[in-house]
């Protein structure tokens, strides 16, 4: 599974969206789809667990979780930074 697919799966499990995640594109706005701030935190925790990463404070903002692609970009960049460290 690609990063985006794993993330899609986690959004489905933890995003508590009123719509089926399969109906959303990678660029669909998750907040418009009904992602609440509470669910976004649960999703964040699941992502940290899944990818063994920690979101830095600078990424804890709305834009990071705006779409599946935005999350994938964020996860990739953290993984890269952690590998480089």
């Amino acid at each position: 599974m690609t990063t985006a697919e794993i993330i899609r799966d986690l959004v489905g499990k933890h995003g508590k969206l009123p719509v089926d995640v399969a109906t959303l594109g990678d660029d669909s706005d998750l907040y418009t789809a009904g992602l609440s701030s509470f669910a976004s935190v649960q999703l964040m925790l699941a992502l940290e667990e899944q990818f063994d990463i920690e979101f830095p404070e600078t990424m804890l903002k709305r834009a990071t979780f705006a779409s599946i692609r935005a999350i994938a970009d964020a996860v990739d960049s953290i993984v890269r930074d952690q590998a480089a460290a």
Binding site: S37, V41, M44, L45, E48, F55, E57, L60
Partner: peptide, 13 residues
Amino acid sequence: GNTSTMLLVHKQD
């Protein structure tokens, strides 16, 4: 309640 959710991931300054 809302703050406590954020504190699950937010790192304090």
